[in-house]
């Protein structure tokens, strides 16, 4: 079963085509990581998965149905997205931010149910932001803020979570913290995680499956071990490297040389 499938998908901004006639599927219950060079269209593809971008041609299926035909609130109950560097409303506390994730379940009458309360507390607890709950989001450090945003997407209680570069601006320790959290969510709650990462080594370690976005399409797709080769890195990133097995995790480890140097 696939969480997301695209059929004949073409995405473009004004006149420039970003993704051209793509057929791809993302399996349920796995961690899928999108990699690719700057401007390759990873984020654009991710946006179309979350219905933030209307395809010029073709369709995106979310849980087997055309995402464009689903109601906005329905999509929000099936898939949560964390965009790159989001901005929180002025003065809002962490708990209030996380509570916004319950929006698709609320109505004018029902603005705060028992379930809303329970889901928000759970999201705060499992992202370790419970003790930050009453602090304003503006006052948090980068890592804390990112965890607060992840908590908001978790409060949405969706099966699929899409994240655009969730580790940007974080130091290595905080990057690991976020990735561990996401993997835990995947393993404990069978959530489908789809994200863009820039660090190839971390991508290989945490991904069940990698999608390489290159030249307006998915250039390669599969288990990291099978697809991350020196040739692929050369083609996609125009970078010479050596790939060795990671001595601790046995996933591919990429050692970059630079464009000119080969040894």
């Amino acid at each position: 079963m696939n969480a997301i499938t695209s059929q004949d998908l073409t995405l473009s901004y004004q006149d420039s085509v970003i993704i051209d006639q793509l057929d791809v599927s993302v399996p349920k219950g796995k961690v899928t990581v999108l990699i690719g060079g700057n401007g390759s269209g990873k984020s654009t593809l991710l946006k179309s998965f979350a219905r933030l971008l209307k395809p010029q041609q073709g369709i995106v299926l979310l849980n087997g149905a055309d995402i464009q035909r689903k109601a906005t609130a329905t999509v929000a109950r099936e898939l949560a997205i964390l965009p790159q560097t989001p901005v929180a409303p002025e003065g809002i506390s962490v708990r209030q931010l996380v509570a916004l994730g319950r929006y698709p379940y609320q109505s004018w009458l029902q603005q705060w149910s028992d379930e809303d309360e329970a889901m928000v507390n759970r999201a705060l607890a499992c992202t370790g932001t419970l003790e930050l709950a009453d602090r304003p989001v503006d006052a948090l450090s980068g890592g804390q803020r990112q965890r607060a945003w992840i908590a908001m997407t978790l409060a949405q209680g969706t099966e699929t979570v899409v994240l655009d570069e969730p580790t940007t601006f974080l130091d290595l320790a905080h990057q690991m913290e976020v990735l561990e959290l996401l993997r835990e969510l995947n393993q404990k709650e069978q959530k489908t995680i789809i994200m863009v990462l820039h660090d190839l080594n971390l991508a290989c370690r945490y991904a069940d499956q990698i999608l390489v976005v290159h030249e307006q399409t998915v250039y390669a797709q599969g288990v990291p071990k099978d697809i991350l080769t020196e040739d692929l890195v050369k083609t996609v990133f125009d970078l010479n490297c050596r790939i060795i097995p990671d001595p601790f995790f046995d996933t591919p480890l990429c050692i970059p040389f630079g464009r000119e140097r080969t040894e």
Binding site: T72, A73, A76, I81, L82, P83, P86, V87, A88, P89
Partner: peptide, 10 residues
């Protein structure tokens, strides 16, 4: 919220 997270929560 920004447009994309706002759309994201429906």
């Amino acid at each position: 919220l920004d447009d994309s997270p706002a759309q994201g929560i429906g």
